[in-house]
Simulated scan of single mutants.
Amino acid sequence: MRSWPTGRLLSVAARLVERRFHDFLAAHQLTHAGLIALHHLTAGPLTQRELAVACRVTDQTMSRTIGHLLRSGYIGKRTDDRDRRRALVELTQRGTEVLAHAREKERDSGDLLGAVEDYARFREDLIKLISIS
C-alpha cells in the first residue's frame, strides 16, 4: 500500500470507513440521513421544513426520514406553542444517546476514524480538501 497513489489510498479508506459505519448505523436502525437530522436537532426543535432545509433535502425525503426516526424512537413531534398549526420535531433521550454513541464510535473506535492519531486535525484537513472548489 505504501506505493499506492494518494488518491487510491483516500478512495479505499473512504469505502472501508463508509462500510463499517453503515454497519454500525444499520445495527442501530439509523441511516446517514437520519444521523444528519439528529445532528441538526441538537440545537433544538425544528419544523419538518426547517429540518429539510438544514439537511439540504426535499420535504418528501425529510418526511420519510422523520417517519423512520419516529418509529425508532429517536425523535418526537409536538405542536408548536407559538403556532398551533405547526408541528415541531425534537430529539428524544434515546435519540440523544444514539447520536452520542455514533459520534463516539466515529472518533474513538479503531475500526473507524479512531485509528487516526489527531482526529481534529484529520477532520480539518478533510474539510480543506472538500472545500477546494
Rank of each mutant, 00 (worst) to 15 (best):
S11G: 03
R84H: 11
F24A: 02
T65S: 02
R15L: 12
D108K: 10
G67D: 15
H28R: 12
M1I: 03
Y74N: 11
I130M: 15
T58W: 00
H28I: 02
S131A: 03
S131V: 04
F24K: 00
R49I: 12
S109T: 03
G67S: 14
H68C: 10
W4R: 12
A102T: 01
K128I: 08
D81H: 01
H68W: 05
V12D: 04
S63F: 12
Y119S: 09
S131C: 01
R123S: 13
T79L: 06
A13P: 09
M1A: 04
A102W: 07
T6C: 05
I127A: 04
S72T: 03
Q48F: 05
M1Y: 13
E50Y: 06
L10N: 01
A37D: 14
R103P: 06
L30G: 09
V53S: 06
E124R: 14
T6R: 10
T31V: 00
D83L: 14
F21R: 04
L38W: 05
R56I: 09
H68P: 13
G34I: 06
D23T: 03
A13G: 12
L10Y: 01
P5T: 15
R107I: 11
A54R: 03
G76I: 07
R86T: 11
Q60T: 12
S11L: 11
L38R: 02
P5C: 05
F21Y: 08
L126A: 03
R15D: 09
D118G: 06
G95F: 14
G76S: 01
S63H: 13
I75R: 04
R82G: 03
T92I: 04
V98T: 02
L9G: 06
R56E: 14
L38E: 12
F122W: 05
V116D: 05
V17E: 06
D108H: 10
Y119E: 08
A26C: 07
A13S: 09
A120R: 12
S133Y: 08
L113A: 06
H40G: 13
R56W: 05
R103A: 00
A115M: 02
G95V: 03
A14Y: 07
W4D: 10
L113T: 13
Q93K: 04
V116A: 00
A115C: 15
L126D: 10
G114W: 04
L69I: 01
R20W: 00
S63M: 10
R20I: 10
R84E: 05
